[in-house]
């Protein structure tokens, strides 16, 4: 089965611990950057995909530099911080940036994938609708839009999802 999904690489990084400066998550809307401060005082930051298909679980520096440039544009004090560590993970990027929660043409096979960068906050709702889909063998109205065939039928979801081609938007 070929899915409208590509595997991409996303990096994040964390700075040395500093005294409390930020009590919430802040994102940089004009680009792709987020920052928050952990309980230990480290600044946790991330942003763009590296941009090419990858399973490597490690990234390259140009993207990290680009992401942190956005951060420093927003909060200049970040430039004084030393980086503690960086890491990369692989993301199931759907073509429209929205997930797929659906049955498939194979009996007994259900899909809950394409969560791209995020998904943690949506976990309860996605779990609940996915359970409904499996238990009743039909989609719930809440996940009806997140169908696998929305790409071929053209019923794409009207939300600002960023899929695999993030450099276009």
């Amino acid at each position: 089965m070929t899915l409208p999904i590509e595997t991409h690489l996303l990096q994040a990084c964390v700075s040395e611990p500093v005294k409390p400066v930020l009590d919430s998550v802040v994102t940089f809307g004009a680009g792709h950057f987020y920052v928050s401060q952990s309980d230990k005082g480290e600044m946790v930051m991330g942003g763009d995909l590296d941009g090419y298909n990858s399973y490597a679980q490690r990234g390259n520096l140009p993207t990290l530099q680009h992401v942190l440039t956005e951060g420093i544009a927003m909060m200049p004090f970040l430039s004084k911080l030393k980086m503690l560590r960086t890491w990369g993970g692989i993301m199931d990027m759907s073509m429209d940036g929205s997930p797929i929660i659906d049955k498939t043409h194979i009996e007994g096979l259900y899909l809950n994938c394409g969560w791209c960068y995020g998904g943690f906050k949506a976990t309860p709702a996605s779990g609940w609708t996915f359970a409904h889909t499996i238990a009743q063998d039909r989609v719930h109205e809440l996940n009806a839009g997140y169908s696998l065939n929305r790409f071929s039928t053209g019923h794409l979801i009207d939300e600002k999802g960023l899929g695999t081609k993030t450099w276009i938007s």
Binding site: T2, L3, P4, I5, E6, T7, G51, Y52, N53, M95, F151, S152, T164, K165, W167
Partner: peptide, 30 residues
């Protein structure tokens, strides 16, 4: 980056099935 190079556009001026178009635009082997 421009994505998977093995993807071929369905031939011009010929009938294209929805499945072929779907494969060209969205589906990837990854």
């Amino acid at each position: 980056y421009g994505g998977d190079a093995s993807v071929k556009r369905p031939e011009l001026n010929k009938d294209v099935s929805d499945q072929d178009w779907d494969d060209f635009v969205y589906n990837r082997k990854s």
